[in-house]
Measured scan of single mutants.
Amino acid sequence: DHWEIRVGDITIHLKDVDEEIIRWVEEALRNGDDLEEIKRWVEEVLR
């Protein structure tokens, strides 16, 4: 699977990601969370 999350001008590409993570990231972006923080979290989860 390949996911693209778009929020404003930001697009995040994710592969082999659980839908729950996608929802979490979308929510975090909508809440204005720091992008670097989100990326770190996702990388942590995917490890």
Rank of each mutant, 00 (worst) to 15 (best):
D1W: 01
D1F: 05
D1S: 04
D1G: 09
D1H: 05
H2Q: 10
H2Y: 13
H2M: 09
W3C: 13
W3H: 07
W3E: 05
E4P: 07
E4T: 03
E4A: 02
E4F: 05
E4L: 07
E4Y: 06
E4C: 06
I5N: 02
I5K: 04
I5E: 03
I5D: 02
I5Y: 00
I5A: 04
R6P: 04
R6D: 05
R6Y: 01
V7N: 02
V7R: 02
V7P: 01
V7G: 04
V7K: 01
V7L: 09
V7W: 11
G8F: 00
G8P: 01
G8S: 06
G8E: 05
G8D: 04
D9L: 06
D9R: 02
D9H: 08
D9Q: 08
D9N: 07
D9E: 08
D9G: 10
I10V: 11
I10K: 12
I10P: 00
I10T: 12
I10D: 04
T11F: 05
T11S: 13
T11A: 08
T11R: 05
T11Y: 06
T11W: 02
T11I: 09
T11D: 04
T11Q: 07
I12P: 01
I12L: 14
I12Y: 03
I12E: 02
I12G: 03
I12W: 02
I12V: 12
I12H: 03
I12Q: 01
I12A: 04
H13E: 08
H13D: 11
H13Q: 13
H13N: 09
H13T: 13
H13L: 11
H13I: 15
H13S: 12
H13V: 13
L14Q: 02
L14K: 04
L14D: 01
L14F: 12
K15Y: 15
K15I: 15
K15T: 11
K15N: 09
K15L: 11
K15G: 08
D16Y: 12
D16F: 15
D16I: 12
D16A: 09
D16S: 14
D16E: 10
V17T: 07
V17N: 05
V17L: 10
V17E: 04
V17Y: 12
V17I: 07
D18P: 15
D18K: 10
D18R: 13
D18W: 15
D18N: 14
D18E: 11
D18L: 15
E19Y: 11
E19R: 09
E19H: 15
E19N: 13
E20F: 15
E20D: 11
E20G: 09
E20W: 15
E20I: 14
E20A: 14
E20K: 14
E20S: 15
I21A: 04
I21V: 08
I21S: 02
I21F: 08
I21H: 06
I21Q: 03
I21M: 11
I21Y: 03
I21R: 03
I21P: 00
I22M: 13
I22V: 10
I22K: 13
I22R: 14
I22N: 03
I22L: 13
R23G: 04
R23N: 06
R23D: 02
R23C: 02
R23M: 07
R23S: 05
R23I: 05
W24C: 08
W24P: 00
W24I: 09
W24L: 11
V25T: 01
V25C: 02
V25Y: 02
V25P: 00
V25K: 00
V25R: 00
V25N: 00
V25A: 05
V25L: 14
V25G: 00
V25W: 03
E26A: 03
E26W: 02
E26L: 08
E26F: 04
E27K: 10
E27I: 09
E27M: 04
E27H: 10
A28F: 10
A28L: 10
A28G: 04
A28I: 10
L29A: 02
L29V: 08
L29H: 01
L29D: 00
L29P: 00
L29I: 11
R30D: 03
R30P: 01
R30F: 07
N31F: 07
N31A: 08
N31R: 14
N31K: 13
N31D: 06
N31M: 11
N31P: 05
G32W: 13
G32F: 13
G32E: 08
G32Y: 12
G32Q: 08
G32R: 09
D33S: 14
D33M: 15
D33W: 15
D33H: 14
D33V: 15
D33G: 14
D33N: 14
D34I: 15
D34R: 15
D34P: 15
D34H: 15
D34C: 11
D34L: 15
L35E: 06
L35T: 08
L35R: 04
L35S: 10
L35V: 13
L35N: 06
L35W: 07
L35H: 05
L35A: 08
L35F: 09
E36Y: 05
E36C: 03
E36R: 10
E36P: 01
E36F: 05
E37Y: 15
E37V: 13
E37D: 14
E37K: 14
E37M: 15
E37I: 11
I38V: 09
I38L: 07
I38S: 00
I38A: 01
I38H: 01
I38C: 03
K39N: 07
K39T: 05
K39M: 13
K39Y: 11
K39R: 10
K39H: 08
K39V: 13
K39E: 06
R40M: 03
R40Y: 03
R40K: 13
R40G: 05
R40L: 03
R40E: 08
W41I: 12
W41C: 09
W41L: 09
W41A: 11
W41K: 14
W41M: 14
V42R: 00
V42D: 00
V42Y: 13
V42E: 00
V42M: 10
V42K: 00
V42S: 00
V42G: 01
E43V: 01
E43G: 02
E43R: 00
E43Q: 02
E43S: 01
E43L: 03
E43P: 00
E44A: 09
E44R: 05
E44V: 03
E44D: 12
E44K: 09
E44F: 01
E44P: 00
V45K: 12
V45F: 12
V45H: 11
V45A: 15
V45Y: 13
V45D: 02
V45M: 14
L46G: 02
L46Q: 07
L46H: 03
L46P: 00
L46T: 06
L46D: 01
L46Y: 02
L46E: 03
L46F: 03
R47M: 02
R47V: 12
R47A: 13
R47S: 13
R47P: 05
